[in-house]
Design a protein around this nucleic acid. Structure first.
Lengths: 171, 171
DNA sequence: ATGAATGCAAAGGTTTTGCACCCCC
DNA sequence: GGGGGTGCAAAACCTTTGCATTCAT
């Protein structure tokens, strides 16, 4: 049974949204160049470990905490040390490949690929799935509100916790 | 020099907003009743330690992480064990007295008194101050957006990171 | 060649757990 | 009186740090 074909809904019954475009070789190459540029610019070195981490994260397209990144990296290459992974999470964030998104229910920071468009998150309290959304109006409202208080928005994190209509149907 | 009178601005130069209403004895009594109700309802027990913690937190009106709660509680009563404090942070959250607000720059969860009105936070990147704001439009927009995606909002956390116009003036 | 990066292990810091004792109901 | 609650210390857990060695430039 092919897993990809079998699962058409989330645990709560919600149809799975169109998946993000898969990481193509071309996009991977872009990121590779980006990392190269960042590293040489910052006078840091290109290493097997750094690219292995970046590649893994880019191909995973998921919301991982530091632990999960460590686990997955070491599953690919057991020789990469835990400390190296932690050290490079920071490097990849600075390089613009990774970004911290939000705090999970467990209280740990979650990371995801830094993509062009900003987006926020909805967490389904019924099945713990993390969904992404984007709303220009929301961004604008954030700017306005902040401005009224004398702030210029640098960044924002908005996480909605909600219950899912699909689950209700099942009850 | 009376500290309360001397400091009229935040480090960045921002005038300090009107402070929240102090915790009155009457309000404290309300919370006490609330805690009593919750505990008896949940078949948990009223203890000296639990009320000491609640009281301290209610009087503090600040955004504390777990560490800070531990420190402050033990400053008031050195005999209260660390484990008890951690155990009761959870109890007080369930009781509706404490709530987790957001993740600080340091990555730790912050807690604050759970009050009737929901509010969000702006963190000043220049002086690290945490300010609160509330915007009905924002709440409504959150509901609408979630609804479009088939969710009913249970809760949301919205944190804006921004730079402060007051600091700019000083430059 | 040289200094940054790595792997390992040890240390650090925070939170949880086990257990004997205590005390609220 | 009994079961939850507590304090203490140990354990568990996650992350950082020190250091000898390796490796990229």
């Amino acid at each position: 049974m092919k897993k990809n074909m079998a699962q058409k809904t989330l645990p709560c019954g919600r149809p799975i949204a169109v998946k993000k475009a898969a990481m193509t070789d071309a996009r991977l190459e872009e990121y590779k160049q980006m990392l190269r540029n960042y590293l040489s610019n910052a006078k840091l070195k290109w290493t097997r470990q750094r690219w292995a981490m970046a590649k893994l994260i880019l191909k995973t397209a998921d919301h991982m905490d530091a632990q999960e990144i460590v686990e997955r990296v070491r599953k690919v290459d057991k020789n990469i040390g835990v400390a190296t992974v932690y050290r490079n999470i920071k490097v990849l964030c600075d390089a613009g490949i990774l970004s911290i998104t939000h705090q999970g229910i467990d209280g740990n920071s979650r990371y995801e690929i830094q993509e062009k468009g900003h987006h926020d998150h909805i967490i389904c309290l019924d099945c713990n799935e993390i969904l992404e959304f984007h709303d220009d109006k929301m961004d604008e409202l954030q700017r306005k509100t902040a401005s009224k208080m004398g702030f210029q928005v640098e960044d924002h994190r908005n996480v909605i916790h909600g219950h899912c209509k699909y689950l209700k149907k099942k009850k």
